[in-house]
């Protein structure tokens, strides 16, 4: 048979391709490929430094980074700094999210007040909150409170806007149904508005956990005695690039783990959203 239908042969080919992909397309297979990418990245970096292609002084070297990381880990220095930053970030995230969400939801109660304060919210949101860092330190000192305050200023506004928008968008038909049943405004708020804003509020957790870390680290840059931001800042002023990378990679790992914690919260806190799995269309 010399003549094959092009559609049939391409279908066979794409199926073969799918089979080849499928052999790596398992959790273990993906983890293997991801680990391989990380190892390759550090290997190329280290070789580059050894060959003198890149300067160890300006970019550091993977072996130096690992040596420093081990030393700082076992001396307890790294854990203490990580804990300090994590605590500041989490506290700022929790306080900011709660304050922001409550304020945003409260604006649902009065259209008048909401319209009145809307331009102010937009104005506050458009200020880069990082620019507040120097005065926040001035007001709240060089300790924990100033970092938490900075994190709160970053996270609260995000939560506020998301909660307010979601409350405005709550299905008016569900609210009408409750009113026809004789529900008062509080019942409409708690039974229809608040539950329908929860997905939007929880969606801000992902963004805000990052902002929480930003607030903590920037606060530490400005003025601090400990924390990963302090570590990075002091090490870079001493041109100790390997230690800077230890701080950066630790921050990355912290952010990475926090993301998955948030992901878990998101998936378990809204069981009604999970009733049907969202499957990506295979192309």
């Amino acid at each position: 048979m010399t003549l094959t239908l092009p559609s049939a042969s391409s279908a066979v080919k794409s199926r073969a391709r799918a089979r080849r992909r499928a052999s790596f397309d398992t959790a273990l297979g993906r983890a293997f490929l991801q680990a391989l990418a990380v190892i390759a990245f550090f290997f190329v970096w280290e070789v580059g430094v050894r060959l003198g292609v890149v300067s160890a002084f300006l970019v550091g070297s993977p072996l130096g980074i690992f040596q420093n990381a081990f030393r700082m880990f076992f001396s307890g220095e790294l854990i203490s700094d990580t804990w300090t930053t994590l605590f500041e970030a989490l506290l700022g995230f929790v306080i900011g999210t709660i304050i922001g969400s409550l304020l945003g939801l409260a604006l649902w109660y009065s259209v008048f007040v909401a319209r009145l304060v809307e331009p102010f919210i937009v104005a506050i949101n458009s200020v880069p909150k990082i620019a507040l860092a120097p005065i926040v330190v001035l007001w709240f000192g060089t300790g924990l409170v100033s970092k938490v305050a900075l994190s709160v200023s970053l996270t609260a506004i995000v939560a506020l806007i998301a909660a307010y928008q979601a409350a405005k968008d709550a299905d008016p038909d569900l609210q009408s149904l409750l009113i026809s049943m004789g529900a008062d405004k509080h019942q409409v708020f708690f039974k229809a508005v608040v539950p329908s804003t929860l997905p939007a509020i929880i969606a801000t957790f992902r963004i805000n956990i990052g902002f929480g870390l930003v607030g903590a680290v920037v606060g530490e840059f400005i003025s601090s005695q400990r924390g990963l931001g302090h570590l990075i800042y002091t090490a870079s002023s001493l041109y100790d690039l390997n230690t800077v990378w230890v701080g950066l990679f630790t921050l990355m790992i912290v952010g990475f783990l926090l993301y998955y914690v948030i992901d878990l919260i998101e998936r378990t806190s809204l069981p009604w959203k999970q009733a049907s799995t969202t499957q990506q269309v295979q192309v």
Partner: peptide
């Protein structure tokens, strides 16, 4: 009151 949409609360 019943409408075309069932208006069940998804949560």
């Amino acid at each position: 009151y019943m409408m075309q949409k069932d208006l069940l609360f998804p949560w």
